[in-house]
């Protein structure tokens, strides 16, 4: 059964068929939101809201469009809203100096050795979160969801050159931050000497 057939059935009154769409897309949607927020519990609850919103907006879905882009567009908007709310919360709580009293602010930041796979994972997660929001969004859609630039354009509304630039900058920044940059620069210099 294709997405469009399921949507027609749901709109005709077979609400239970919506569960097929949830099963089809929930993994990808939760993966996307988890990578964007780096918070698995919040990702689950945002994903639930996404599906509720998709259900409410099904009558506005046009068959000539791609359903995957439709659902990811909603997921992207809801995730960015959540991130903005979070930023405001952190800002105000820091303003009130609540955060400064917490133990983790007084402790030394943990140092990771990148040889341990788990620590490497933590380092990547942390650096992904440090990327500017648009770069992170473009990179996650490309690397983890494996969308083409055209599909990313449908989801975000950005032009293809902008997507190219965002992804390229995100990769450069990550390379630099994760520590690969130094190593590859050495290789490049050595190679050029030879």
């Amino acid at each position: 059964m294709t997405d469009d057939e399921i949507i027609s059935a749901v709109l005709a009154g077979r609400r239970q068929d919506f569960e097929i769409l949830i099963r089809r897309y929930s993994g990808k949607i939760i993966h996307f939101i988890t990578r964007m927020t780096q918070d698995r519990d919040e990702a689950q609850s945002i994903a639930q809201e996404v599906f509720l919103k998709v259900f409410q907006n099904l009558p506005y879905y046009r068959k000539e469009n791609n359903f995957s882009a439709f659902i990811f567009k909603i997921a992207k908007n809801m995730t960015l809203n959540w991130l903005n709310r979070e930023k405001r919360t952190v800002f105000f709580s820091r303003l009130l100096q609540r955060e400064l009293d917490k133990a983790h602010f007084r402790q030394e930041p943990p140092r990771y050795s990148l040889h341990d796979p788990n620590e490497r994972e933590i380092e990547i997660t942390r650096n992904l979160l440090l990327l500017p929001e648009e770069q992170r969004l473009a990179l996650i859609l490309k690397v983890y969801l494996e969308f083409s630039y055209k599909q990313i354009r449908e989801i975000t509304g950005w032009s293809i050159p902008k997507i190219e630039t965002l992804i390229s900058r995100a990769k450069s920044r990550l390379k630099k931050n994760i520590g690969l940059q130094e190593r590859s620069r050495e290789f490049v210099l050595n190679a050029r000497k030879k």
Binding site: E19, I22, R23, S26, G27, I30, H31, T34, R35, R40, A43, Q44, A47, Q48, F51, L52, P117, R120, E121, I124, T125, L128, L139, V143, Y144, L174, I178, L180
Partner: peptide, 18 residues
């Protein structure tokens, strides 16, 4: 390295919750 991050474990009850 980026692809080393595993996708989050699927919650089998998620569709029912929605």
């Amino acid at each position: 390295s980026l692809k080393l991050l595993p996708p989050p474990a699927a919650d089998p009850h998620f569709p029912a919750k929605v």
